[in-house]
Nucleic acid binder design. Structure first.
Lengths: 241, 241
DNA sequence: CGGTCAGTTGATTCTTCTCAACGGAAGTGG
DNA sequence: CCACTTCCGTTGAGAAGAATCAACTGACCG
């Protein structure tokens, strides 16, 4: 690393250097505003696979922006069983559902080594009063999360197993693409049982569907590595019951 | 209506007179702030049963607060089939999922005569910059909606039919209670097919479950009128698959 | 090199859907 | 006010989809 690079780094905010700059918070802010935001964000030690970012019941102080890696979020029911809600990818925000109650409702666990920015929520609200664009962006991110969760309700409630898995694969593909990764060749960070759990299916059903999809020539799958061969047909499978 | 009443009305903001004052927006605001908020809220003509508050694709200008009555919100899929997302009751906000995209994603239809307050969103954001409590309240409402949708994903994805209906009945009971209505004796505003659709079940399944619950002495049901006889047992049915 | 865990596959069972028929409520038009 | 239609809700019988149970294979880990 040369001095040039170091100079450049000190001149630009850390957010500006971040690979997911466009996906994350600072959209549409000017330099001064970006610096203010940058100053309240805490960069954390990367999480190792299996570590928690937060657990249900923890007091809510901050929301988090995922910089790299991936996490699963899940609810815990009385009997101690996990219910996977979703998979978070770089650029996603975590913890938004905790604002209203003041403690985390779900738990977030790293599926692989992941780095996360911590954004103290009180300071973010203070800042949002000063920077109108920031307030709107925060509301917008929350709005989008509501929208996504509503779509999940429709998927999980009304689609047959085949359509649910097709939907996950297509959605993942699009999410990878929007982050600059390959849309048709990627690695699942979650296990079959996480996928099954998230979709409300048995592991065996998911496993069979992967096999079927492969036999039909829609995908090529080997353990966690998935290639999408026929996105058209895969998308066509996403139908309601 | 006497002059006294008119005087009272002009002295107090309309929000303060509203029956759902505590549930709705103005929580924790002082008089001056309340007046400001009050001044941007538009009271609309009541919606008749079957009328739309908004439809998917409509441009987003305002969010709405339901004052009385009830609405269903639903997504429309390509093939034109409805997918009921939820039932809104007095004090609920509608339209929050439209903020990010600028147009409504779902449609909202009145299940009975309903009155709604319209809150122009741009003006609300302006106001939120001036009234910190308001911004927090808005974020908090959105956060709670995310939380509720996440719980629905768990319900629809992983619960057997029996548990899904039990969950709806218990949740409705609690929502009625929190609005000052009877928790154990209420009228469903939605049809069996709306309930079935919302739960991802066939109408016949829902109908059979109502009958079973009644045979078991858990509820008494006659068309839309439901009485909860044994909330304990009903709650105990809410189990994952 | 066992041992454990993740994933796959097969056989069977159970839940829920679909198809079908029917009763009753509400609404319409004469 | 009554006959008619239509829609909503209920119930039964059979079919289909997915879960469960069980056995097996191959990774990964110490």
């Amino acid at each position: 690393m040369t001095n040039n690079v170091v100079d450049l780094e000190s001149a630009r905010s850390v957010c500006q250097q971040c690979g997911i700059f466009k996906l994350c918070f600072p959209m549409g802010l000017n330099m001064g505003e970006l610096d203010k935001l940058d100053s309240i964000i805490k960069r954390r030690q990367p999480l190792e696979k299996g570590q928690y970012l937060y657990q249900a019941g923890d007091p809510f102080k901050s929301i988090f922006a995922l910089r790299s890696g991936s996490l699963k979020t899940y609810l815990m029911s009385q009997d101690g069983s996990e219910h996977v809600i979703g998979i978070k990818m770089p650029g996603d925000l975590l913890g938004l559902s905790a604002i209203s109650s003041g403690h985390f409702i779900n738990s977030a666990k790293a599926l692989e080594t992941s780095s996360v920015c911590e954004i103290p929520y009180e300071r973010l609200e203070e800042l949002a009063c000063l920077i109108p664009g920031l307030q709107h962006h925060l509301s917008s991110m929350m709005s989008r999360e509501i929208q996504e969760e509503q779509e999940k309700v429709a998927i999980c409630g009304k689609m047959p197993a085949e359509a649910r898995l097709a939907s996950v694969l297509v959605t993942l593909s699009e999410r990878f693409a929007s982050r600059g990764f390959s849309a048709n060749d990627f690695n699942l960070s979650m296990s079959r049982s996480d996928i099954a759990n998230m979709l409300g299916l048995a592991v065996e059903t998911v496993s069979r569907l992967f096999s079927h999809f492969q036999e039909e020539g829609l995908i090529k799958v080997e353990r966690k590595h998935v290639q999408i061969l026929d996105k058209e047909k895969l998308t066509a499978l996403i139908k309601m019951n």
